[in-house]
Design a protein around this nucleic acid. Structure first.
Ligand SMILES: [Mn+2]
Ligand SMILES: [Mn+2]
Ligand SMILES: [Zn+2]
Ligand SMILES: [Zn+2]
Lengths: 134, 134
DNA sequence: TAATTAAAGGAAAATTTTTTTCCTTAATGA
DNA sequence: TCATTAAGGAAAAAAATTTTCCTTTAATTA
């Protein structure tokens, strides 16, 4: 998609990062997969960049994380997933197939915090069976 | 506390696990700290078991996890924390000091899942400033 | 108790995951 | 096109976790 790629290039530039083919590919992969772990990204990108180094993948994940372009999702029992940063949302993890899905975040969370605790943000993770596995 | 230790010993026995001093100490440490990561457990237990192996700590964490005696909490930006398994609850992580606190879980979560998705359980993690750091 | 035995501990090695280094390559902006 | 500097690749290093192998010990039983 012409639009999206240009968007990513701009986003990178705007953060003072170079728009390299490897970086763009990583973003496109995360875009396509929705949520991907290091190994999925590495396996996928190797199809186009046969000699890419795993270190490059790690380095890019870290710089993209630091600049808030992507975000990490820690999932119980599996390796961290990464996704393009976007509007706040919650996640559904299928306990059968492991797939992570975006779901709307709750309108309101009624959790009573002890006196003096200041919440900044909340994240919800639902575990269950996805449509395919149900 | 006489009661608690006996309880853990029984719990272990009941799962077919031996109640070793190292294991009991790990459980007591998690009990005392509430939430502890591998390194905290290791540093703490070394005070009593000077020559305990880090491998023993890992091995016990894994067996205790497998038997559902403890559970893992994946916290953004830090190493996993472990705690004695207990009633379902939510967590508050202080973004200043890193401390994890138990909070009541929400009475109800209004998240609309797509057709065909079957939720089994949900967990909420709140990030903010704790009383001490606020 | 003493003997038996299977699980668990310790030390070291192995494996896996992630980061760093060092040098080369290429994106960017003038 | 040129100069600058961030980023890529390969390899090494570091960090995290698991496995191996042998010894010790908790639990069971005679
Ligand atoms: Mn998502
Ligand atoms: Mn807890
Ligand atoms: Zn599924
Ligand atoms: Zn705090």
């Amino acid at each position: 998609m012409r639009q999206k790629s240009a968007h990513y290039a701009d986003l990178l530039k705007q953060k003072g990062l170079k728009s390299t083919p490897q970086r763009m590919a990583m973003l496109r992969i995360m875009e396509a997969k929705g949520h991907a772990d290091i190994d999925e990204i590495y396996q996928e990108i190797k199809k186009d960049f046969v000699s890419i180094s795993l270190a490059t993948v790690y380095k890019n994940i870290n710089t993209l994380l630091n600049d808030g372009i992507i975000q990490e999702i820690k999932v119980p029992h599996k390796k961290s997933k990464f996704e393009i940063a976007k509007h706040k949302h919650s996640h559904f993890v299928c306990e059968r197939c492991g797939e992570v899905y975006d779901v709307q975040k709750p309108k309101k969370l009624d959790i009573e915090l002890p006196e003096g605790f200041e919440p900044r943000e909340a994240s919800v993770l639902i575990v269950g069976l996805c449509k395919k596995c149900h």
